[in-house]
Amino acid sequence: MTFIERIDALSSRFLSERSYDLIVGPAIADLQHDAGDGQSPRSMRGSFPVLVAFAGAAYDEITADSGLWRIGALALIPAMYYAFLIVLILPEAGAFVTARSGLLALAIAIAAMSFAPVLVCCWPERRPRRPDTADA
């Protein structure tokens, strides 16, 4: 699976047709045009603008659709659960948890573990895109 196919699959699941047509699609098209052969970029640097466009489109989806704020509310439940566990083991964890970098790492881990399942399970269904834009 190429990079563009992966982005296409992710867009089909998480983005509306409008976001794909106006944000991710043009980013891919310009990337392919830049590469000159219509293929995937060969370096991480080349794919970065498409990743940024995808992230921007996802952010637009979240902020435009107020229903998606419930994802944040749902993610709070596991976040509280994990945070409570951390509080319980705090005296045992010692230096790792008291260090600033350790706390940051824990916060990132809690956010990832809380948001990932909620995003996958609760993100609204998206209609499959028209074949002419998806397969071009």
């Binding site: 106006l22 944000i23 980013a27 603008p49 498409v50 940024v52």
Partner: peptide
């Protein structure tokens, strides 16, 4: 920037 231009244009 190349990554953010499409988001701005869509908005």
């Amino acid at each position: 920037k190349r990554g953010s231009v499409y988001v701005t244009l869509a908005r």
